[in-house]
Design a protein around this nucleic acid. Sequence first.
DNA 1: CTGGATTGTTACGCGAAACAACAAACTCCC
DNA 2: GGGAGTTTGTTGTTTCGCGTAACAATCCAG
Lengths: 401, 401
Amino acid sequence: MRAGPSQEDIRRHNLGALLRHVHLGGPISRAELTSKMGLNRSTIMALTSDLTAAGLVREELPRETGRAGRPSLVVRPESARVYVFAFDVSPDRFAVARVGLGGVILDRRESTYERGAFALEELAGTLSGFARQMRRKTRADTVCVGAAAAVSGGVRKGDGVVRFGPNLKADEVPFGEELGRRLGLGLPVSVGNDANLAALAEHSRGVGAGVRDLIYLHGDVGIGGGIIAGGHLLGGHNGYGGEVGHMVVNPDGRACGCGSHGCLEAEVGERALLESAGRFGAGQQGRDAVRAVVEAADRGDIVAQEALSRVGDWLGLGVANLVNIFNPEMVIFGGMLREIYLGSAAQVRTQLALHAMAPQREKLRLRTSALGDAATLVGAAELAFAHVLADPLEVLARANA
Amino acid sequence: MRAGPSQEDIRRHNLGALLRHVHLGGPISRAELTSKMGLNRSTIMALTSDLTAAGLVREELPRETGRAGRPSLVVRPESARVYVFAFDVSPDRFAVARVGLGGVILDRRESTYERGAFALEELAGTLSGFARQMRRKTRADTVCVGAAAAVSGGVRKGDGVVRFGPNLKADEVPFGEELGRRLGLGLPVSVGNDANLAALAEHSRGVGAGVRDLIYLHGDVGIGGGIIAGGHLLGGHNGYGGEVGHMVVNPDGRACGCGSHGCLEAEVGERALLESAGRFGAGQQGRDAVRAVVEAADRGDIVAQEALSRVGDWLGLGVANLVNIFNPEMVIFGGMLREIYLGSAAQVRTQLALHAMAPQREKLRLRTSALGDAATLVGAAELAFAHVLADPLEVLARANA
DNA sequence: CTGGATTGTTACGCGAAACAACAAACTCCC
DNA sequence: GGGAGTTTGTTGTTTCGCGTAACAATCCAG
């Protein structure tokens, strides 16, 4: 309930709001900003001046106006100058990216490895090494303003410690701290759950742009989720919100790695699909194996079709439950679930019609991820930029000091 | 993203925050307000002066201070002067109350009737009649600043139309509008789902005070729910959020009135319990019938015990799912679920241990409603007061005009 | 090239909250 | 009971963000 010296708060808030417009919406004229933010021309000028002076945005004359009147200056993010590091760690893959203000991926490196080959701790060195390499290539006037990592596991609110990650060999790992130390930039590294961050990404720059209530479902080895409720990421009391993978949809169903039975993850996860299709342990694994099943089903393979149908039924039931509970405007399927949904949309829709209540489902939109594999990385970048948008000047003052 | 003339916004916000403190926390000294709101002494004085002048609060010298220094003036809500009307409509009961600022129930009338005897439209006249009667009894200087109704059905966001209410014979009923017209006070009447409003009530003045992430489960004829996520009621895209009653927990389970099978409501609702206990249609109905089963189980009735155990298992599974998805700090059982939970807490806890993930459940608290039957009414009053807290002076200026 | 339209820029005023100084009222202690 | 110390109410002043208004700059249309 604190307010602080309120005038500064206003300024901070308005600076952040303006920067957020530019960051998420891309180049925009001062005239549009005045109308969208409901502030006065002169105020917008003062704000942009501050941000320009801080080196966060640049103002340029537009090429063509097309309308009468003096052309309005276009405010664009200093994408090449101001950037963050984004990390993404999955059980069989990691990626590092340098992401500029505005969401541009300036540099990117990734690597795949055998599933579960590395423990989370071991990766911190490699990740920070790549980041330092990228940093060395940058020009002198560039400035790193943050860093964040997405991990496929539970991240405790507050200290950002990775609590569980059965697919990642992690338990009580202070990953952010470790990464921050190794980066040596004096910056704290935020950590978030991968599906949560992918949800954030789709919400800010994906199919879910402008949608205030959405559910993002991510299929990887397991099933993760991220929920945007009322425009805000649902974190829960300890930060484990959105973990829909262990919602029980079939009490008499398959055993799940978590000890329970019939979890969404157990019925819809990669293993369930491959086993049903009689392809588990048959060499292929991961996204490619799932794709192969969907393609086989498309070609008329009965076993694959039935496996996909079965999985689609459970997925549909899970989605129906979530729709009943949340009444979202959109459900987004990402990761491996993109393929599964595309291959079993009919089953999903049938189950929705059966189990979801009419008012909740009548305006519902089902979509697949727009950002694809980059979603997690983009989400991590958003997380890293978050404190910049919360207090633009403070962050840059510290960075330039 | 609009900001408006920001100085007024600040003032409005601060006035609202101060009034909210007094409204929810009761009488409080100006000194405490300065520290809790983080504002300056002189600012607090200016704010309380405005609110006192508007007749919303009163300032008094405290009886005893106990501490050194000049005693700080105590700010208390004008509970007797400023009030709202709160309505609560269930399938077999309705209640009308006059609730003063601060949450005091000043006057109350209720009535029970045979389940489903009335359609929602028919009740508007009765309800407004009671309200008008209450209003006639008030002194001349009292002022009604709002009204709201809780209904056991889905309420569409925006226009407040009751979309569904299978237990209430309602379909596309513009209940708020109708009630507002009949009240004749020139006030809009907000409408909300009963479980949602009960959740709001427990969050603001019940066991969930200060808890930012909680789930309230309400058992009536069906099972309703309200979710507070990050301190805000989860409404969803169209306002049907929190409808947990039709989450499918047992796909092979009992048929539900909604057309689906194995919904939480179908497995845990009143009918499921009474049927399992062999008491369905045996004269008793409603809360009393449920209580009878729990009491019989307490006395050692095997059939009742098994019925309760079975229902408790499904309840526990439902709660486990919600805990996995939301990671709430607290789950509150209200209405008939209070009795059911108290009679089957062991089953609920067992299912939680089986199906809820450790990080989500380790800090979880299970509680029963503190406000009991008044929860819905109190929640409706909160809803009615909401716009007063959002802009105290504007509301009172209009009321006194 | 002129007029209308739109925006950038600057000087000024308003208002909300912080700050500082003083007065008021209490407790404690002798 | 009275003085010292403490805490708060009250008032005048200052600060700072934003809105307003007036003017300059720059576009398009004719």
